[in-house]
């Protein structure tokens, strides 16, 4: 029993470290990317997996809390893509256009049809 707890604790620490690295990279992406949509891409993906991994790591180190931590993980996994989708849609409809190296935009005609 003791050895199992020991092993779980090390696995948990690994997950915590990995998650915090991803959180850091997500924030770096938010800072460095050239426009809103690319920032959303970097921010959403990296911060979702980063937060999930940190929370799971704590859950492995402290198994009594695991149920509630899994609820947090599920909630982050559902809510984070939804909010980034809502932000992307809102800002496109408000007229903020993405940065293109070579223009490729199917959505513009859809918006024009709706008006």
């Amino acid at each position: 029993m003791d050895t199992l707890n020991y092993i779980l604790e090390y696995i948990g620490l690994f997950f915590v470290l990995l998650g915090s690295i991803f959180l850091f990279l997500g924030a770096l992406g938010i800072y460095r990317m050239p426009d809103l949509y690319n920032r959303l891409q970097a921010g959403t993906k990296a911060s979702t997996l980063g937060a999930m991994s940190v929370v799971l790591g704590v859950g492995l180190m402290q198994p009594n809390w695991l149920i509630k931590l899994i609820v947090i993980i599920l909630f982050i996994g559902i809510s984070n893509p939804l909010s980034s989708h809502a932000l992307a849609r809102a800002s496109y409809r408000r007229g903020i256009r993405p940065f293109f190296k070579k223009k490729m935009d199917d959505y513009e005609s859809q918006i024009r049809d709706e008006r």
Binding site: I30, S83, S84, L87, A90
Partner: peptide, 24 residues
Amino acid sequence: TAADRAIALDTLSVIGIAGLVLLG
């Protein structure tokens, strides 16, 4: 733009959740 600030706020809150769990 305001949307950029909203994105930063979103990421900050997710980072905050992870930080709270870790501090706990």
